[in-house]
Design a binder for these strands. Structure first.
Length: 274
DNA sequence: AAGCCCGCCAACCGCATTCGC
DNA sequence: GGCGAATGCGGTTGGCGGGCT
C-alpha cells in the first residue's frame, strides 16, 4: 500500500480505516443512501476519496455482509461460478449472498487456486501413470479473462441431466430456455443452497426442471454446474434478475431469457448486486 | 524470547465504463 | 457528440497475525 498516484488527491488520507471514519460513513449512508461517494468527503469532512469510501462500504460496512469462513457449499459454488464466468468477481459475488467480490477474489487467490492446483497436479500424476499421453492440461487459472476473453470462454464441461436449452429456432421476440429432460411432470422440486425449494411448473413455455429422478432434490450448485456451453447464452443468464428472488418468501416468478418459472428461494438470497 | 516465513485480507491502483453537462 | 467526473471492476500490494524454528 501507499504507492503514489497521479490521480491522488492532495490531503486525502490512505491506509486502514478508523472506527470513527467507519461511523461517519455509516451515518452518512443511513441518512442519504448509497452512491454519491464523492460527496461524502465534502459533506462530512471525511478525508477519503470517493473510491476509498465506496470500497469501504461495499466490502466491509454494508449491513448484509456475511462475515466468517466460506462454507463448503459456498466454496463449491464459487468454483463452479468461476468455471462458468471466469474472473468476473462481481458477478460471482452477486450470486453468493453476503459475500463481496473482494472477499471472493481474495479467497480464490489465496486458497482455492492453490487447492485446485494441487488437485490438478494430483490428477496429472494419476493420468500420467495411467496413460503416457496425458493431456498436459495445465494452467492454474484456465478461466482468467486473459486466457478466455471473458464470458463465453472457458465453460463448464458438458454434463447431463439439468440444462438450459436455447429454443431460439422459433425466432420469437425473445429466446426461450428450457430445462430439458427425458420426462416431464407438472411440478418438480429442487433445492437452492441449503433448504429452499423450487417449484417449477412444467409448461412448454416455461423452464422445465427435470431429471432422471424427479423426486430427488437438486442443488443450485448442480443447476449451475450443468449449464452447458451452447445450451445457454451466458449473457442471457447474466441478465437474469436474481435480485427479485430475495424480495419474497413465497414462490415467485423468475425470468430467464424471456421465459419464467416459479421459484422459492432462501430469504437471504441476494442476487445481482451491481 | 526472538526472528523468520507465510497466508489472509483490507485497501490501493489503473483502466474501463457510465453518467451528467 | 464530446468531454470531464464519477463509478465500477479486476489485479496487486503490503500490513498484520499466527505458526514454526
Amino acid at each position: 500500500m501507499g504507492r503514489s498516484s497521479r490521480f491522488e488527491k492532495v490531503g486525502m488520507k490512505k491506509g486502514a480505516w478508523t472506527a470513527r471514519e467507519d461511523q461517519i460513513l455509516i451515518d452518512y449512508v443511513k441518512k442519504h443512501g448509497e452512491g454519491k461517494w464523492g460527496k461524502i468527503s465534502k459533506e462530512t469532512g471525511l478525508k477519503r476519496c470517493g473510491k476509498s469510501v465506496r470500497l469501504r462500504w461495499l466490502n466491509y460496512l454494508r449491513p448484509d455482509i456475511k462475515r466468517g469462513n466460506i462454507a463448503d457449499d459456498e466454496e463449491e459454488l464459487i468454483i463452479r461460478l468461476h468455471r462458468l464466468l471466469g474472473n468476473r468477481w462481481s458477478l460471482i459475488a452477486g450470486r453468493i449472498p453476503g459475500r463481496t467480490d473482494n472477499e471472493i477474489k481474495n479467497y480464490w487467490n489465496s486458497t482455492l487456486r492453490r487447492k485446485l492446483q494441487q488437485e490438478n497436479h494430483l490428477n496429472e500424476i494419476k493420468e500420467n501413470s495411467s496413460s503416457p499421453s496425458g493431456s498436459g492440461a495445465d494452467e492454474d487459472d484456465p478461466h482468467s479473462t486473459k486466457n478466455n476473453g471473458g464470458v463465453g470462454g472457458g465453460m463448464v464441461e458438458p454434463t447431463s441431466s439439468y440444462c438450459f436449452t436455447n429454443h431460439n429456432e422459433k425466432k420469437e421476440d425473445h429466446q426461450r430456455y428450457h430445462l430439458e429432460s427425458t420426462t416431464t411432470t407438472t411440478t418438480n422440486k429442487t433445492t437452492f443452497f441449503s433448504g429452499a425449494t423450487v417449484e417449477a411448473e412444467a409448461n412448454k413455455n416455461d423452464i422445465e426442471l427435470a431429471g432422471d429422478d424427479l423426486s430427488n432434490d437438486v442443488t443450485w450448485n448442480d443447476f449451475i454446474m450443468d449449464l452447458n456451453e451452447g445450451q445457454l447464452d451466458i449473457s442471457e443468464f447474466l441478465q437474469t434478475d436474481f435480485s427479485k428472488l430475495c424480495e419474497s418468501e413465497s414462490p415467485m416468478k423468475v425470468e430467464v431469457g424471456g421465459c419464467s418459472t416459479n421459484h422459492e428461494l432462501p430469504n437471504n438470497w441476494a442476487g445481482g448486486r451491481s
